[in-house]
Amino acid sequence: EPIKVKAASLGNSQVLPRDYFNQAEIETVIKEIGEQVAARLRHHHKLAGCLSLRTRLVSFKNYLQEGQ
Rank of each mutant, 00 (worst) to 15 (best):
K31W: 06
S52M: 08
Q23V: 12
A38E: 09
Y20C: 03
E27V: 06
S52V: 06
N12Y: 13
I26Y: 01
I30T: 08
D19I: 01
L47G: 14
A39W: 05
G34Y: 01
E32N: 14
I30F: 02
D19T: 05
L10P: 01
A39N: 05
H45W: 10
E27F: 02
R18N: 07
V29K: 02
Q14C: 09
N22A: 11
H45E: 13
L10I: 13
V37E: 00
I26E: 02
E27C: 07
V29P: 01
E27L: 04
F21R: 11
V37P: 00
Q23E: 15
S13V: 15
E35T: 08
Q14S: 08
V29I: 04
G34D: 03
I30C: 04
E25Y: 02
E27Y: 00
L47K: 10
K31C: 11
I33K: 00
F21T: 04
T28M: 06
E25H: 03
K31S: 15
I26L: 04
L47H: 10
R40V: 10
I26F: 00
A48P: 01
Q23A: 12
N22R: 09
F21M: 07
C50A: 10
V29E: 00
N22F: 03
I30L: 03
A38F: 08
E35S: 06
G11C: 05
C50S: 07
T28W: 00
Q14I: 12
D19H: 02
P17N: 12
N12R: 14
R40P: 00
D19R: 03
N12G: 09
A24R: 09
Q36E: 15
H44C: 11
N22H: 07
R18D: 04
E35W: 05
Q23S: 14
P17S: 09
G11L: 12
I33M: 01
E25K: 06
E25A: 11
C50Q: 14
L41I: 07
L41M: 12
R18S: 07
A39C: 04
Y20E: 03
I30D: 03
E32G: 11
D19F: 02
C50W: 03
I30M: 01
N12H: 15
L47D: 11
V15G: 04
F21A: 08
T28N: 03
P17Q: 12
